[in-house]
């Protein structure tokens, strides 16, 4: 995964780091269990202060995206497993609140609900299908897992048909 920061951008650097790591987790470039570099190594490579990287890692820890595993350093967490119910509830509330705010603003600017939903759908498609800026989603099928890290199920005839339909190939004799 390639982390890019811009010191001239209006966003603080630790915010940029945090956003990019969260985006990478969302795209599947960072999987649960991946070891993030040590604070010193990352600060050195980016040419920034230790404190900045510490802040970014602290924010990510608080939000539940990574945890520190002693000597191994920072490890990407499986959000669903690690986050407490309160945290999940808080995140759900935050999602609802942000969407509500956006919808209100769209309404205040004279937009319609359909436009809002259409835009929301296309952005969601983009986020959930994004292969990433620098390469495709990591192919985990080699280790017997799908893109979410869950073990691959045995493919039955139903699913095989589904897959070949997705590829645009008409299954023969079915």
């Amino acid at each position: 995964m390639i982390l890019r920061i811009d010191q001239m951008s209006p966003d603080p650097v630790y915010q940029q780091i945090r956003d990019q790591i969260v985006a990478a987790i969302g795209r599947g470039e960072l999987l649960p269990g991946d070891r993030l570099p040590s604070v010193r190594a990352l600060a050195s490579d980016l040419g920034i202060n230790l404190h900045t990287v510490n802040k970014a890692y602290a924010v990510l820890r608080d939000e539940g995206y990574l945890f520190m595993r002693g000597r191994a350093g920072a490890v990407v967490a499986d959000f669903q497993q690690v986050a407490s119910p309160e945290k999940k509830a808080a995140q759900a509330e935050r999602l609802a609140g942000t969407l509500y705010q956006l919808a209100l603003e769209h309404c205040a600017q004279g937009g319609t609900e359909e436009e809002f939903l259409k835009e929301a759908k296309s952005q969601a498609d983009r986020a959930f299908a994004d292969p990433g800026v620098v390469g495709t989603r990591r192919d985990m099928r080699v280790s017997g897992r799908n893109a979410n890290g869950n073990p691959l199920k045995e493919r039955g005839p139903q699913e095989a048909r589904g897959i070949s339909n997705a590829l645009g190939v008409t299954p023969q004799g079915v």
């Binding site: 390639i2 982390l3 890019r4 920061i5 991946d34 070891r35 993030l36 990352l42 490579d45 040419g47």
Partner: peptide, 13 residues
Amino acid sequence: TAQAQQAIATIVE
């Protein structure tokens, strides 16, 4: 002149 002050780090690879 530089329009940005970018820096890159590779992670996990």
